[in-house]
Structures are given as structure tokens and as C-alpha cells.
């Protein structure tokens, strides 16, 4: 290899080792939502203020529990969720991460 290139490569290596900024990086988010109707809406409405693991680690809530959670996001934290998306969001969350009501 051309010694000049070796020098540059060594420089890159040293910069990488000594770069303190790199020491202070947070590992990436890894959570992926389960497929299902309404998933895109949750991705659009619920990932703005926190990672989606806030949602996926909840215990299996009944639909009323998910509706209450969405209402809390709107009233306490100002989540800009339009009223007409609440049902779709709650259905997806109940279906994928909740306790669907027993079939009659």
C-alpha cells in the first residue's frame, strides 16, 4: 500500500479511537410494531414524544385501558391525536398489545 494511504488510514483509526463524542452515543431504538390495521397511525401519532417500547411493554390492557392511555396522552401531554383516530388506535393496540374482549 502507498505509505501516504497508510498514514491516512492510521489517522482515521486514531481519530475513531480518540473521538470522545463517540463515547457518548446512545444505542439505537430497536422496537418494531407488530403488523396490523392501524399500525401506520400508531407510528404517526405515538412516536413523537417517546419510543414505542413505552407501548409494547405495557401489560395486556383491555380496550378501555388503551382508550384511557390515549386520552391521557392527549389531555396531560398534549398529544395531537385527532378525535376520529382514537378508535382506530385503540383497536390496533387492543388487538396487538391488549386483551381483546371475549367473543360473545
Amino acid at each position: 500500500m502507498n505509505p501516504r494511504w497508510l498514514g491516512i488510514l492510521a489517522g482515521v483509526l486514531i481519530a475513531a479511537v480518540d473521538s470522545p463524542a463517540d463515547e457518548w452515543k446512545l444505542p439505537p431504538e430497536t422496537i418494531a410494531l407488530k403488523p396490523g390495521k392501524g399500525r401506520e397511525v400508531v407510528l404517526g401519532q405515538c412516536a413523537m414524544c417517546h419510543s414505542l417500547d413505552y407501548i409494547t411493554t405495557q401489560p395486556p390492557l383491555p380496550k378501555a385501558g388503551w382508550v384511557a392511555s390515549i386520552e391521557k396522552m392527549r389531555s396531560k401531554y398534549g398529544a395531537p391525536v385527532p378525535t376520529n383516530s382514537v378508535a382506530l388506535l385503540a383497536d390496533y393496540l387492543t388487538e396487538q398489545y391488549g386483551k381483546p374482549a371475549a367473543k360473545p
Binding site: L26, P27, P28, E29, T30, H50, S51, D53
Partner: peptide
Amino acid sequence: RELVRYPEKRPLIRLTSRP
């Protein structure tokens, strides 16, 4: 849960990532 290594930490049990 995932065990994830953060700056100055050994791998710990991650509940949420942001925050």
C-alpha cells in the same frame, strides 16, 4: 427485555430507549 449496553454502563435491562 433486551440487555443493552449504554455509555458507562454494563449491559442492563432496557425498559424503554427514548428516553
